[in-house]
Structure formats: structure tokens, C-alpha cells
Design a protein around this nucleic acid. Structure first.
Length: 800
RNA sequence: GCCCAGGUGGUGGAAUGGUAUACACGAGGGACUUAAAAUCCCUUGCCCGCAAGGGCUUGUGAGUUCGAGUCUCACCCUGGGCACCA
């Protein structure tokens, strides 16, 4: 008898599926509902690692299952191919980034196809294809026209190694999330996307999607909604009106000073021509220097300097001196804050500089109240604390007062209600070569002018030297011919924008393109989008919680508002997958030498075993553990047994246990729906052990997991002429599943003392009688039975 | 500091409030073999016991319940997110 030899089987069927165009997806199939299963497209690094296998081969099981369930399934693949690594690798190997990337795409596509997933390769999308990035540019223009793309000068995160700007989301612990360099702050003019316009919608939308709680909460935190007030104030002697945000207005009467951010443009107006000018400017320069060098630590830095100016008596308790303070943040609220004795930072600051404080809230504990009134402690969080001022609220408890106080302040004209978000706009300019060119032109006379839509795509020019420039200018500035253009507006001399886009822009809409990848007139036709979108299930890594997933949602909100898509959330259901670590429990990396090469594993065990083993490791959405090189044998043994039993032609036997089979159909299907592939596979293992039968139904249940092996047996043992992957998922008979006999646990005082087999429908009397007759039970019945808990078909608990 | 998620055998893990440890790996023993691999069979949470049997066990401690891995509270630990955001 032939041994199970996946290498001879798998290639054959992959070819068969390809020639039969089995997985080419039509937009519409009569009588079938469409289903869009999306996986995150990879960066074409040139080599397929185990993470790719985990990301793609396991969701493939889900896609195949859905297809068998009668859906017309779209399961596309593509490449997120712009980005830094291509430049670095190209420099190293002395080739053009385009060449390097295209070669990688070829190699990786071959490797991907060896996986045997049901990707529709005819719909492949690549972000570096001018037919793709033409639409990335087109969308930019629409956003520009709608005021959603704008230019602004800000302090930006600057990576000194990659020599480019980073988005806030790309800075982790003050370091570049790609290369780990300490990020500096630089002032630059950049193109921005107005994400903040959708802050509330991005928050609201989270309520109606089926996403992991962790992701939803991460986004909520990132958006950071805060309710409060804006105080309406005046600067004494200058007549300048200002506003200050406060999310805890209940303690407004305690406010005795104000702080302003060092970067605030108003500072200059406050101090110019006064004795404070020099010391304040010195202070600000010092802070800035620390920030640029990234030596500024908010935690340890409590410093400030008086500006000599005051906010004019806002609450009838006197003027508030204005200090420039290290902890004041320019980017949040108005950059000016009223400070009080009931905030930890404010309190520490006032103590350091001997600024007077006036507590207006005390707890019921007298000792503590004393400490607060003596300014020995800052008191804040106890909802039971009692308010002393304003007098209208004297004696009231602090908790629950917020709304009343806000209304009170509004009536007095002191403040306006305000909702503040922490979310910042998205800086999309990058000073790098290998990215989508930003389709803008600068004209000396007209300023920034958008490229005409008919001139798209603005193709990335070939550059001999595409290295980043030391001065931070974009490499594209060197493409002089390319840069020089006529102004689309006045026809005068003008220059192209030489920055390229953050690659997250490319990946914010790729799932739209899959629905209509060849379209030359639109990024995707409305009809195609209507058929497929929004995405039904999206799986990917948790690292995208606040980046890719938020950016994509922003794109859809904006496109929706512009009437370009008719849905406002891109992904109905999202599941993050876990991580497969190296055998040593560490993240796989070449330097640690703990990398498991999937190609090697496939050569040894076959693709079916590798994908099934990955799925068997644990629940797909929570697994986070090591690859156990020994354990893969278990799955291989299982598939070998399937093969052996099939070869024995033990396939047409009348199955003596129809019931067991139907239970398995139910269990396997339900588990796949939950992405609990591990328990689905264990059910198949049990089923095989119990029945030792490989028949049609068993093969269909196995098909999503081991598509090659099941196809082989389907044809060459069962003699079928068409693919098993065109078959329908078996349907179980609910009536058949019910067990006639049940193992009933007999407990005495809640401890199981015996298990008795009885008809499932047995009533309490019957079970109790059987229980009391059992010697193991009787031994523990030392007294009269006071109470009996009876659960039909399950349990009988005798309570003494 | 705040907010999530999690903590079950030697390992990955399984359990609608109802027989904890399914399935798999590993380990031990046996069969086959000149031998090994492969395969097959048996054992395998811990403790006492020759056995029958009994006791203990889901991070720790309490609670609710006839009954808790599952619910509640407090604490410890691990992983993740946010963080002078006023």
C-alpha cells in the first residue's frame, strides 16, 4: 500500500484548481449570497514566513467552509508594496526599489500558491501599480477639494535614521516603530488628513460593528473623547480674548492660576516688550531643545515661568496669573489651562512656585479635610466629597454635579459646553522615494494647486539616487525634470510636490479595489461595491488596532460623506489573530535563530499538515504561543490515518453510527464559525478514531482543513469526477443528534459519586431510585435526603 | 496611575453554572523488528493504598449556590493598550 505522500498529491491538485478556474470569483452567482472574507495584504519582503501562513492558510479554512455553505465567496490577495524596506534592500543590493519589489512579489506569489489557499489570483492588487496608486492620488484630490487634505506647519516626529516624518501612531515609547531610533521633533510643513473631523463618527461607528472589545477600546482611548467646558476669558491689559478647556468644571472656583503651552503663539504677545521677555524666551528655548533631543520627560519635568500677565478676574475671586508651563500641551484643547488646587499636576506646580491655592471641596473625613484646607494634599477623586463653592452648590456632593455646574456656567456666560478629543489629524507626507507621489503642484503665484484628474496617475520617476537626503528634503526633489511643471491654473512655472504618501494611505482602501480591480474609470464601480461591501469578516494582527483599522475607517467615513461609497463602516466583523512564536517562546527572528521555515515544514509534512497544525494550536483569535516542532507529528499522523483508512477502501461500509456523524457535522460547522478551528479538528480526530471510516461526509468535513488530501481521496478512492470543493457542506439532522441514553452524574452533596447510564428522558423518580441503589452512592448516604436537585439527562444531586 | 485581556496537567489546550483535565504532544511500559524508524496496544493531574477505594486539585483568599474553572468582591502575577490630555 502506498504511503501518504503529500508532495506528489498537493502540486497536482493546485494545478487542477488553477486550470479549472475553481476559485475565480464572479460578482454574481444566481441563487448565491455574496460573502467577502478579507485578510490583511502583506508587505512583499521576499520571503514567506510562518506568520504569513498563520495569517492566510487558517482563514482559508473559513473561506472554504463558507463556500461549501453555499456562499459566493470573495477571498482576494494583494501586496502593500510601497515602503521603506524596499529602499533599504534596494540600496544594499544595488537595484531599483521597483525591481526588487516586483521580484519579491513574483517569488512570494509562487510561495503563496504552494499553500493551496482558494485565493482568487485574478483579482490581485498591488499598491505600487500605477493603475492602483492613480486612485490613491485621485482620492487625495477629492479629499483636498473637500477640505479634508490640508497643509500645516507643526512639530512633527522625525526619525533621524529613516530621515522621514512619522505619524503619532508610528511612534512607540518615543521611538520609531520601524527601526527603533529615538524620534526627534522637527518643525515642518506637511500634508495632513483631517481625521479629527470624524472623531465622533469614528467613536459612534464602533457601536455597530462586531469587533474585538480590545480593539474597540483601543480606538476609543485613541480618539479620547472628553466632555467639559471652554471658559471665556480675557487677558488683562491686552484685551485679548482666550478660551481654556476644562473637563472637571465642578472645581472651577478653586482656579487660581493658568498655564499656557511653551509652543503657544500667544506667548510672544504676552511678553513682548516686558521685563519677562528674555527669561520666558530662554525657558521656552530650553524646553524646545529638550524636546528636539527627546530628553524631555513629562513625568519628571515640572517647570514653568511667570509671563507677567493675568487672566482678568474670571470668577470674582481675582485675576489668574499666566505661567508658561512644561506640562501644558499645545495640541490639546486650546493650549491654555485654568489650574486649581484639585488637580495633581496643578497642585505640584503651585507648590513648587508658591502660587496661592484655594480648595473648594472637602471629604467627610475631618482629618483629611484639614489636610486639604491646609494645602498639604490635593484631593480629587472621591465622589462623596462636599463642595464649598460656588455658594449656590455649597454642601452638595461632588459626584453627579457636572451637568448642573456646566448649565450654571453657561447661564452666567462664563463658559460654553465643549467636547474635546485627543485624536490628532494624520500627517501623511513622507520624505522618502518609494511611495505614492502626492498629486499637488506649487506655483509661485497660485500657491498649492491640485494636479488635474486627467493627468493622473502622477507616476513615480526613476531615480538613480533614491537615498533619503540628510537635510530632510525629499529624494524626489532631485528629479529635476519631473519636478518642473507648468501650473495647471495659470500656466506659469511651477514645481511638483516631492513628498510621497505614508504607506498607510495605500492600505486604507485596498479592500475596495478588490471588488473591481481592473476598473480604469473609477477606483471601483458602485455596482461592484454594492455586491461585496462592507467586508463580512476581516482577520489580521492586533498591531493594527489604532493604525490601519482607524485609518481605513476614516477613509470610509470621508468617502461616504463625499457620496463615493454607500456604507460608512468598512469591516462588519473583525477578529485579530494570535501570534506563533519560535520554539523557545520568543518572537521568531533570524538573529535569535528560532525561525521555523514554512517551506521546510511543507517539504517534510505537506501543506495540509502545516496549515492544519497551525489551526490546531489553539483558538485562532487568542492563541499566543510557541511552535512545538514535535507536536506537528500529531496532525501528520492523523492525515496519514485518513489516507490509510481510505486506501483500505473502508469507505462504503454502511455506517453503524449515523448519529455520531451528525453530531460531528454540527460541532465542526459551529466551531469554524467561531474560528475555533482547534476544536473542530479535534472533533474530526475523535470521529475518525471512533468510526474508522473515511466516507463522503467525512471528506467534506475535512475539505476546508486539508483541501489537497480530501480532493485526492475524493477522486482516486471515491472515483468522483468533479472537485470536492464544489460540494455543499453536509447538513445534520437535529432529530438524529439527540442521545437516547445518557450518562447521568449522581452527586451526594454536590460531589459526584457515580455515573449511571439511563435513558435520557428518565424522570426524577427513576434516576433517584437507580442512584440510591448504587453502592458507590449508598455508601455516602449517611443520613436522610433533604433535597434532590434533578437535571434531566444530566445530573441528580442528593443533598443530605 | 487608568483601561482591557488572561492565569487549568510536564506542554499546546478542552469544558451552555452540572462527571474538570476532551483532542493532541511529550514521557513510561509492551508488541512487531537482527536493530532502528514507522506503526499498533497499555499507562500517564497530585497524594494515601497491594487493591477496592478515599482525599486533594483550575494564580491566592473570601462570598453567592444543592453545585463554581465558569458568577461577585479583594489581592497576586503575566500580556496588551493609554498616559502630565487639564
Amino acid at each position: 500500500m502506498k504511503k501518504y505522500d503529500p508532495s506528489s498529491i498537493e502540486k497536482k491538485w493546485q494545478k487542477y484548481w488553477e486550470t479549472k478556474k475553481l476559485f475565480i470569483t464572479e460578482d454574481h452567482v444566481e441563487g448565491k449570497e455574496n460573502f467577502y472574507k478579507l485578510v490583511e495584504f502583506p508587505y512583499p519582503s521576499g520571503n514567506l514566513h510562518m506568520g504569513h501562513w498563520y495569517s492566510y492558510s487558517v482563514p482559508d479554512m473559513y473561506a472554504r467552509y463558507k463556500k461549501m455553505c453555499g456562499y459566493n465567496v470573495l477571498f482576494p490577495f494583494g501586496y502593500d508594496a510601497f515602503g521603506l524596506p524596499a529602499e533599504n534592500a534596494a540600496i544594499k543590493n544595488n537595484v531599483q526599489p521597483a525591481e526588487w519589489t516586483k521580484k519579491n512579489i513574483k517569488v512570494m506569489t509562487k510561495q503563496m500558491q504552494s499553500m493551496g489557499a482558494m485565493f482568487d489570483w485574478s483579482r490581485m492588487v498591488s499598491t505600487i501599480d500605477p493603475d492602483y496608486y492613480r486612485w490613491t492620488q485621485w482620492i487625495f484630490l477629492q479629499f483636498y477639494k473637500a477640505g479634508l487634505a490640508y497643509r500645516a506647519k507643526t512639530l512633527v516626529n522625525w526619525c533621524p535614521k529613516d530621515k522621514t516624518v512619522l505619524a503619532n501612531e508610528q511612534v512607540v515609547d518615543g521611538k520609531c516603530d520601524r527601526c527603533g531610533s529615538i524620534v526627534e521633533q522637527r518643525e515642518r510643513e506637511q500634508w495632513m488628513y483631517r481625521v479629527t473631523k470624524y472623531a465622533q463618527q469614528l467613536l459612534d461607528g464602533l457601536e455597530k460593528v462586531d469587533w474585538p472589545k480590545t480593539t474597540r477600546i483601543a480606538q476609543q482611548n485613541w480618539i479620547g473623547r472628553s466632555e467639559g467646558v471652554l471658559y471665556q476669558e480675557k487677558i488683562k491689559g491686552l484685551g485679548i480674548k482666550i478660551e481654556a478647556f476644562d473637563s472637571v468644571p465642578q472645581t472651577y472656583m478653586a482656579q487660581t492660576f493658568a498655564v499656557i503651552a511653551p509652543e503657544h503663539p500667544l506667548v510672544e504677545k504676552l511678553i513682548t516688550g516686558t521685563e519677562h521677555e528674555k527669561p520666558v524666551m530662554d525657558f521656552i528655548a530650553d524646553i524646545r531643545r529638550k524636546k528636539v533631543e527627546n530628553k524631555f520627560e513629562y513625568r519628571n519635568e515640572i517647570s514653568g515661568i511667570f509671563t507677567g500677565r493675568y487672566i482678568e478676574n474670571p470668577f470674582g475671586t481675582g485675576d489668574l496669573p499666566i505661567w508658561v508651563a512644561s506640562f501644558a500641551i499645545m495640541e490639546y484643547g486650546t493650549g491654555i489651562v485654568n489650574c486649581s488646587a484639585h488637580d495633581e499636576r496643578d497642585f505640584a506646580f503651585a507648590k513648587k512656585y508658591n502660587i496661592p491655592l484655594r480648595p473648594v471641596m472637602v471629604p467627610s473625613n475631618e482629618e483629611q479635610a484639614k489636610r486639604i484646607l491646609n494645602l498639604e494634599e490635593c484631593y480629587h477623586h472621591d465622589l462623596e466629597a462636599v463642595v464649598l463653592e460656588p455658594l449656590e452648590f455649597k454642601g452638595r456632593k461632588w459626584g453627579g454635579l457636572r451637568e448642573e455646574i456646566i448649565n450654571f456656567l453657561e447661564q452666567k456666560g462664563l463658559a460654553k459646553r465643549r467636547i474635546q478629543y485627543r485624536l490628532r489629524d494624520w500627517i501623511l507626507s513622507r520624505q522618502r522615494y518609494w511611495g505614492t507621489p502626492i498629486p499637488m503642484i506649487t506655483c509661485e503665484d497660485c500657491g498649492y494647486v491640485p494636479v488635474k484628474e486627467e493627468d493622473l496617475p502622477i507616476k513615480l520617476p526613476k531615480l538613480e539616487n533614491y537615498l533619503p537626503a540628510d537635510d530632510g528634503s525629499s529624494p524626489l526633489a532631485r528629479a529635476e525634470k519631473w519636478v518642473k511643471v507648468k501650473c495647471p491654473q495659470c500656466g506659469g512655472a511651477a514645481k511638483r510636490e516631492t513628498d510621497t504618501m505614508d504607506t498607510f494611505v495605500d492600505s486604507s482602501w485596498y479592500f475596495l479595489r478588490y471588488t473591481d480591480p481592473e476598473n480604469k474609470k473609477e477606483f471601483a464601480s458602485k455596482e461592484a461595491m454594492k455586491k461585496w461591501l462592507p467586508v463580512d469578516v476581516y482577520t489580521g494582527g492586533a498591531e493594527h488596532n489604532t493604525m490601519h483599522l482607524l485609518y481605513s475607517r476614516f477613509f470610509i467615513k470621508a468617502l461616504h460623506e463625499l457620496g463615493l461609497v454607500d456604507f460608512d463602516e468598512p469591516f462588519k466583523m473583525r477578529r485579530n489573530h494570535g501570534i506563533v512564536l519560535g520554539p523557545d517562546g520568543q518572537k521568531m527572528s533570524k538573529s535569535k535563530g528560532n525561525v521555523i521555515d514554512p517551506d521546510k515544514e511543507v517539504a517534510e509534512y505537506g501543506a495540509d499538515t502545516v496549515r492544519m497544525f497551525l489551526a490546531f494550536l489553539g483558538p485562532y483569535d487568542t492563541f499566543n504561543g510557541p511552535w512545538d516542532p514535535r507536536a506537528i507529528n500529531g496532525v501528520y499522523r492523523f492525515l496519514s490515518r485518513v489516507w490509510m483508512i481510505a486506501q483500505n477502501k473502508n469507505v462504503n461500509l454502511k455506517d453503524q453510527n449515523e448519529q455520531r456523524l451528525h453530531q460531528a457535522i454540527k460541532k465542526v460547522g459551529e466551531d469554524i464559525e467561531k474560528l475555533h478551528f482547534n476544536t473542530a479538528i479535534s472533533e474530526l480526530m475523535k470521529l475518525l478514531n471512533e468510526r474508522e471510516v473515511v466516507d463522503e461526509v467525512f471528506l467534506k468535513l475535512l475539505a476546508p482543513f486539508a483541501p489537497h488530501l480530501s480532493e485526492e481521496i475524493w477522486h482516486n478512492v471515491l472515483g468522483k469526477k468533479t472537485s470536492i470543493h464544489l460540494e455543499s457542506w453536509p447538513v445534520y439532522d437535529p432529530a438524529l443528534i439527540k442521545e437516547d441514553m445518557a450518562m447521568i452524574a449522581i452527586q451526594v452533596n454536590g460531589k459526584t459519586r457515580a455515573v449511571i447510564q439511563l435513558p435520557t428522558e428518565s424522570d426524577e423518580q427513576t434516576v433517584r431510585a437507580a442512584a440510591e441503589a448504587d453502592e458507590h452512592v449508598a455508601r455516602h448516604l449517611s443520613g436522610p435526603i433533604k433535597k434532590v436537585i434533578f437535571v434531566k439527562g444530566k445530573l441528580c444531586n442528593l443533598v443530605l
